[in-house]
Design a protein around this nucleic acid. Structure first.
Length: 604
DNA sequence: AAAAAAC
């Protein structure tokens, strides 16, 4: 088998590696004399310096929008700052050397490459017909290939290293929108490539833009902020973003709670372009005056509907509206989620300026790739029922590394109890929830991912965004109260074009979910048991409205008649661009992108 | 009512 891209890159960069191998030279180092790194002093300057002097990248960021004037104002006055030898030039001094050497993120890949056989067995034709809906003013057209997008040579190299052959549907639409400088509310199933969809334009924009030096030392002035609702998800986004920005000179730093703050502070002091964070730790850093948001040009909220729900909204408002972040229209804001309830869209519109709404039909979850089952199980029978499922799985040989089972429960206590009970009964299980230490949480996740403990009991902390390859079975031991949470949970399986199974234990306690669950399953062509239909018919409907047809996670609330009546005439006219329904732009098809081994991580 | 998120 031939060497993978990542392997060849790492081999080329390994000083101990055979010199006979054709050495890979990153683009920005080509045609450069290989001199010794400059003195330490140079690096010291770079530590707090954000001045971008990417010779060759100094293209002004021309934004073809009505805010370009404002945005350029933000840029003006920067140019003088990052002079030669300052700013990120420092990386040639410090970055590439000793402990400051940029770690190759493509080497220690803990997820094994998918075998050719395995991936070729998947039918990717389903992706040809993914419906897409856009609404808003002057929507930039989608692209078909990465080559159609000018992200810059260094990012293109990383796309190749990631083995992304073609953009995923959400990427094809979201990247041009984002590169055009437009605000975006994007609704696309988890596992649809959202992380890359917002990272690529941010990285490329930072590489091309002109930015001032940070005005103060010991205070970090990120240019982009990516917020997510859980620590593990922030880590995952950080890992992805590091890959996408490898050798671009763009620095990504992550900050989250439960981990020692000092190391995070040191990383921040060394300079940060893109800050990935959970809200609590970021507020802490802001109050300590170790981070300023005044230079933020890009704001991305992942799992945006969760970020704006009751628990998080005050913190998010504080960060986005009550600190020193530039207002909408000056910064560029992108919201991503698999589900987007109308009430949340209404809240979110405060953060956006003339935005484009993008809905990409469900990609993995609740479509053909996930078989959804609902079983009627009394509370007292749940454990023995779970054991039956696990025994059956064991006998079928679907146990171990290639086949993981994720069990969702309602409470943290319940998670501890079930984990203990499973272990007592000889099942290799671990658990993750918010009362565990961060160390325990990370250990549990690692142990699960590697197949060391192929059963993970989890609360909703693990429901969103986490990309865990090989999850074959999601068990909703306790169903959530919200159908959107159900959608996110089962989205942990059936990823990257693989099939998955989702089993839910249903009883009287879940009657409020009966209607939306049976609707959802019906939409996904799943078999709805007759007893569930009866439950659904019986229940007074308290759930969510059908979300604009079966094929989308949500519909642009601006198109809702009640909104248009309530809004001023001006607002209605504003969005007069209307909606564009496109069924499958897939001229080239997605086969290539899915048929390649190792594309798994593209899908989150 | 629970979960998540700072120390």
């Amino acid at each position: 088998m031939s060497m993978s891209w990542a392997d060849s890159v790492s081999a080329a960069e390994n000083p101990a590696g055979a010199p006979s191998k054709s050495a890979y030279v990153p683009p920005h180092l080509r045609n450069r004399p290989s001199t010794d790194p400059p003195a330490q002093a140079l690096y010291a300057g770079a530590a707090a310096s954000l001045g971008n002097d990417h010779s060759g990248y100094g293209v002004p960021n021309v934004v073809g929008s009505r805010w370009s004037g404002q945005r350029n104002e933000y840029q003006s006055g920067y140019a003088g700052g990052g002079g030669r030898g300052g700013g990120w030039n420092g990386r040639s001094g410090g970055w590439d050397r000793g402990r400051d050497r940029e770690v190759n993120p493509f080497t220690n890949n803990d997820s094994e490459p998918v075998s050719e056989l395995e991936s070729s067995a998947i039918n990717f034709d389903a992706y040809e017909d993914i419906p897409v809906e856009t609404s808003g003013d002057n929507v930039p057209p989608p692209v078909n290939t990465f080559a159609d997008i000018d992200l810059g040579e260094a990012v293109n190299e990383n796309i190749r290293r990631c083995k992304y052959v073609k953009p995923t549907p959400v990427q094809r639409h979201a990247i041009p929108i984002s590169l055009a400088g437009r605000d975006l509310m994007a609704c696309a199933q988890t596992g649809s490539g959202k992380t890359a969809a917002f990272c690529f334009p941010i990285i490329s924009g930072i590489m091309r833009g002109q930015f001032p030096r940070p005005p103060r030392p010991r205070m970090a002035f990120p240019l982009a902020l990516i917020l997510s609702p859980t620590r593990e998800l922030s880590c995952q986004i950080h890992d992805e973003a590091k890959k996408f920005s490898y050798q671009t000179g763009v620095r990504v730093v992550v900050a989250y709670g439960g981990a020692p703050i000092n190391q995070q502070l040191r990383e921040l002091e060394r300079g940060v372009h893109i800050l990935v964070a959970t809200p609590g730790r970021l507020v802490d850093l802001l109050e300590r005056a170790r981070v300023s948001l005044q230079m933020i040009r890009y704001l991305a909220l992942d799992e945006a509907d969760r970020m704006l729900d009751m628990g998080f909204e005050p913190q998010i408002r504080k960060i986005v509206q009550q600190m020193d972040m530039p207002p909408p229209g000056v910064r560029q804001t992108m919201l991503f989620s698999a589900t987007f309830p109308k009430e949340i869209q209404r809240l979110a519109s405060d953060f956006l300026s003339t935005y484009i709404f993008l809905a990409v039909g469900r990609v993995g979850s609740s479509t053909d790739l996930i078989v959804q089952r609902v079983e009627y199980v009394q509370e007292t029978d749940k454990r023995s029922h779970l054991m039956d499922l696990l025994h059956a799985q064991k006998e079928n040989g679907v146990h171990g590394k290639q086949s993981l089972t994720l069990v969702f429960v309602e409470t943290k206590k319940g998670a501890d109890a079930l984990e203990h009970w499973l272990c007592m009964n000889g099942f290799p299980a671990t658990a993750i929830h918010g009362d565990r230490t961060q160390q325990e949480r990370e250990h549990a996740l690692r142990s699960f991912k590697t197949g060391h403990t192929p059963i993970l009991v989890a609360t909703d902390v693990a429901a969103r965004g986490l990309d865990i390859p090989h999850v074959a079975h999601v068990v909703n031991f306790d169903l959530p109260n919200d159908i959107d949470d159900y959608v996110h949970r089962i989205g942990r399986t059936g990823r990257a074009g693989k099939t998955g199974l989702a089993t839910a234990f249903f009883n009287e306690n879940n009657s409020s979910l009966a209607r939306s669950l049976s609707d959802l399953m019906q939409e996904a062509n799943q078999e709805v048991p007759a007893w569930l239909s009866r439950f659904a018919a019986r229940s007074t409907y308290g759930g969510k409205n059908r979300r604009g047809g079966a094929r989308f996670g949500a519909r642009d609330f601006r198109r809702d008649s009640s909104y248009n009546r309530g809004a001023s005439g001006g607002a209605t006219d504003y969005y007069g661009g209307g909606a564009n329904m496109n069924s499958g732009y897939a001229s080239g098809g997605y086969n290539a992108s899915f048929g390649t081994a190792g594309v798994t991580s593209a899908w989150d």
